[in-house]
Amino acid sequence: MHGPFNRRGARKPMGEINVVPFIDVMLVLLVIFMITAPMLTQGVQVELPQTSSEPIQDAENSEPIVVSVNREGEYFISLGEEETAVSLDEIADRVIILLDRNPATRVLVRGDRNVSYGQVVSLMSTLQTAGVADVGLISEPPPGEG
């Protein structure tokens, strides 16, 4: 008698694993991820909540560099009481000079709520090219808080 049974009727151990079901599952998952991946990169219109947060405490008590964008899209750099109007191209050079003097200085971005999101992203990208690893965002508490 040929096949997996011997004379006593006991099954002979099989030495191979059937991987076809595993391949089928992996192909289905691949198709699912290929369909959903482009959807994950698209933005969804949301209305962001207003929240309150504790102010940042500086260990060195040094004045931060504040880079601002006003409603008209003009850029300003503030260090202490000194505020200077600058172009987007000048920001990187000035921030590099200020950080060379004191590398522990924090860099904060203050943007008008009516300025375009793209201008704030361009500003943050410019700061990143200037070598600023950590950029903070300045906000106000919601109305009624204090």
Rank of each mutant, 00 (worst) to 15 (best):
V20C: 01
D93S: 14
L123K: 01
E81V: 09
S52H: 05
V46Q: 12
R11N: 09
E16Q: 12
G144Q: 04
V28I: 15
D112E: 08
D24P: 00
I65F: 03
V44Q: 13
A104S: 14
Q128I: 04
V109P: 03
K12T: 15
V44M: 07
A59N: 08
E60I: 01
G144N: 04
S53N: 06
V95C: 01
G43K: 12
F22D: 07
M34I: 08
V28F: 10
D89L: 09
S87N: 12
R101T: 15
A59L: 09
V67K: 01
T51L: 10
S68Y: 02
G73I: 00
Q45T: 13
F33N: 11
V115R: 06
V20N: 04
V66I: 15
F5T: 05
P4L: 11
D112C: 07
R94D: 08
V107L: 02
I91H: 03
P143L: 07
A85P: 03
D89N: 10
G131C: 02
E140D: 14
I23A: 13
I91T: 07
K12L: 14
P142C: 04
E47S: 14
R106S: 08
E47L: 10
G136V: 02
E54I: 06
V19E: 09
G131R: 02
V66F: 03
E81L: 10
T36I: 15
